[in-house]
């Protein structure tokens, strides 16, 4: 069978269309659900700390556990029903070590200030996003950098408005990125 260069060019365009569909399928799989889950966490927890600091200090782990459970359920029931992704053991190990070192550093630093601890965990979480982005998809790198910068701005510049800033700017960034990935990303 012989093809003209024009037919070959049209065929390569079909291939590029298929590759683009693959990129969209990967991005729209379920990443937006995780961004909405943890965006809601970033919105609610700072507001609790702002208006009821003692409640926040005592029950933040409950919110974190609820977020982790929700993410796990989404990962197992929704993600796995669309795309089957084998466990990347090296990446899982990277995240495991990140969590372990984050806990060790917190223990060594010994901070008992809610604002310090919250900013610390936000930046650690965003470091995880950046690592995931380097591994999988560049938008997570930009999201991690943006949320880290927003956290630092709130921490160093906004004093008593830190919690409100984190709720609106931090949570809003995660939720907004989730909507962008799900509904507006075209390529």
């Amino acid at each position: 069978m012989t093809l003209s260069p024009e037919e070959a060019r049209v065929a390569l365009e079909q291939i590029e269309a298929g590759r683009k569909a693959a990129r969209l399928a990967l991005r729209r799989n379920c990443g937006h659900y995780h961004l909405w889950i943890w965006g809601a966490f970033w919105v609610v927890v700072p507001l609790v700390f702002h208006y009821a600091p003692e409640v926040g200090a005592r029950y933040t782990w409950v919110f974190a556990l609820a977020g982790a459970l929700a993410s796990t359920v989404v990962g197992m029931l929704v993600e796995g029903s669309r795309l089957r992704v084998p466990l990347n053991t090296r990446f899982a190990a990277l995240i495991g070590f990140l969590v372990a070192f984050a806990a060790i550093w917190l223990f060594l630093l010994g901070s008992n200030n809610s604002k310090n601890i919250y900013a610390y965990f936000c930046t650690v979480a965003m470091f995880g996003y950046i690592a995931a982005g380097l591994w999988f998809d560049a938008y997570l790198v930009w999201l991690g950098v943006a949320a880290t910068v927003l956290t630092l701005v709130g921490f160093y510049a906004l004093g008593p408005w830190f919690w409100i800033w984190m709720s609106v700017a931090g949570g809003g960034t995660l939720i907004g990125t989730g909507f962008y990935v799900r509904y507006f990303w075209k390529d």
Binding site: Q14, I15, G18, R19, A21, A22, L26, R82, R84, P86
Partner: peptide, 17 residues
Amino acid sequence: LRIMALLCALGRADAID
């Protein structure tokens, strides 16, 4: 062509429903 392009571009996902 589009089916094979999509399947081969999934990368980290090894199957799609």
